[in-house]
Design a protein around this nucleic acid. Sequence first.
DNA 1: AAGACTGTAGGTATAAATACCTACTTTAAA
DNA 2: TTTAAAGTAGGTATTTATACCTACAGTCTT
Lengths: 218, 218
Amino acid sequence: MNQQIRIAIAEDHQLMRQGIVSLLSEEEDFDIVFDVGDGAQLLEQIKTNPVDIVLLDLDMPIVNGQQALKVITEKYSSTHAIIISMFYSDDFITESISTGARGFLPKNSDIENVVDAIRAVYSQGYYFDDKISLDLLNKLISNKNVQPKFKDEILTEKEIEVLLHICEGKTNKEISVILDKSQRTVENTRMKICEKSNSKNTAGLVIYAIKNQFYKIK
Amino acid sequence: MNQQIRIAIAEDHQLMRQGIVSLLSEEEDFDIVFDVGDGAQLLEQIKTNPVDIVLLDLDMPIVNGQQALKVITEKYSSTHAIIISMFYSDDFITESISTGARGFLPKNSDIENVVDAIRAVYSQGYYFDDKISLDLLNKLISNKNVQPKFKDEILTEKEIEVLLHICEGKTNKEISVILDKSQRTVENTRMKICEKSNSKNTAGLVIYAIKNQFYKIK
DNA sequence: AAGACTGTAGGTATAAATACCTACTTTAAA
DNA sequence: TTTAAAGTAGGTATTTATACCTACAGTCTT
C-alpha cells in the first residue's frame, strides 16, 4: 500500500466533525489520526501525533482557528492547514493565506471538494476552490505578503469588552456605567473599533463582531 | 427485518448533510429516503416520497425551514419533523414546537443525539434534548398553545427591505433616497421593526436580522 | 360597507452616535 | 530610556436614531 495521508480535523460542531470523519474514512489512503473540538485540543494533540493535513474550522471557541493556524505554521512546517469556514469573504481568505493556510473551503463545499483539497495540498502544497475570485487569486500571486493591515487591526481587551456591550444593545452611557468609565472614554473606544473594523456605524460593528466571532448569537 | 424508519434530510450545508447521511446510514433500521439542500426541494420530494421523519435545518434559503415545517405539519400528518438549528434560543424552540416540530437539536449535537431523537420521535412522537431548560419545558407543558406572539410579528416586505439596508450600515436618509421615500417613512418603518423584533436600537435590529436569516453574513 | 392593516409622511422633541480635536497617565516594547 | 501604544477623558459640533403624536390613501378581508 502507498503511504497514507495523515489527517487531523478541528471543528467545533460535533455533527459536522463526525460527519466529515465518517466521509473521509471511506478514502483508503486517508488516515484520520485525530479529531478535536477546539484549537487548544488541536495544539495539544499535534504535539504527539504528527499529521500531514489539518482541516481547520476558523470559528472555534477557546483558542480560535486563526491562533491555532499561526502556531501550526510556525512550529510544524510539515503540517499543512486547510481552512473550513462559514464565511467566504476575501478578507478571511487573504488573512488565512497570509497566516499560512494552504487551502480554503467554504462550509457549503461538497465532500469531493474536501477530498480534492486534501490530495492537492498533500501533493502540490496548495489548493484553491473554483469559487475563489480571479481577482483575489491575482492579488495573492502578485503580492506574496498580503496586507499586514490585519496586524494592527487586532482589537484590545477593552475594545472587545465595549464591542460586546454594543452588540447587546447597550448605549455608550450604559456601558460607561457598567465599566465605571467616562462616557467619553466609551465613545472614543467605540470610534477606535469603527476605525479598526472599517465600519461606519453600529450596524457595521455588530456584523464585524459576529463575523469575527467576538459576539456569538445565542 | 423490522420495519425501517423512513428519513429525509433537509440541510443547506452540503458537507453537514452528506456527513449526517453517512452517519445515519450505519443504522440498519434507518432508511434515508432522500436529502435536499433547501425547503422548496423538500416540499417537492415529499410529495412522492413519504417519510416518517424529516431532519430539518431551520436556516435554509429559498423556502426557509419555518415555512417548510408549517406545510409539512399541515399536509403530512404522518411525517414528524425534528429541527436542527445553529441557534438554541427559547424563542426558536417554542416557535418551532408551536409550528409542529416534534424535536429540537442544536447543531453541536452528537450523532448519538440525532439517532436517539429519530427513534424517540418515531416511537413516542416527541424528543427533547437534555439541554432544553426545565423552564422552557414547563412553559411548553403548561401552555400548549405557546405564544401566538409570532403571528403578528412577521415582517412585511417593505420592513425586510429596510432592515437589510440597515444591516448594510445605511442611514435612514440614505435608505430613503434608495427607496425613493420620505426619510420619515423610513424612520417609521425602522421603529415598526424595532417593535416587532422587540429590539431597542440598531444593534438589536442587526442581531434579529441575522438570527432570523433575513441578513446573511457574507 | 366596515374594519384592519400597510404604506405613506408630517410635527416635535430628546437621546445617542459620529467626527475631529487636545492631553495626560500608565504600560509595554525597543 | 526613549518610543509607542493603550486607556483615560475633556471640548465642541453635527448627524442619526429614537419616541410619541396625527393623518390619509390604498388594499384586503369579513
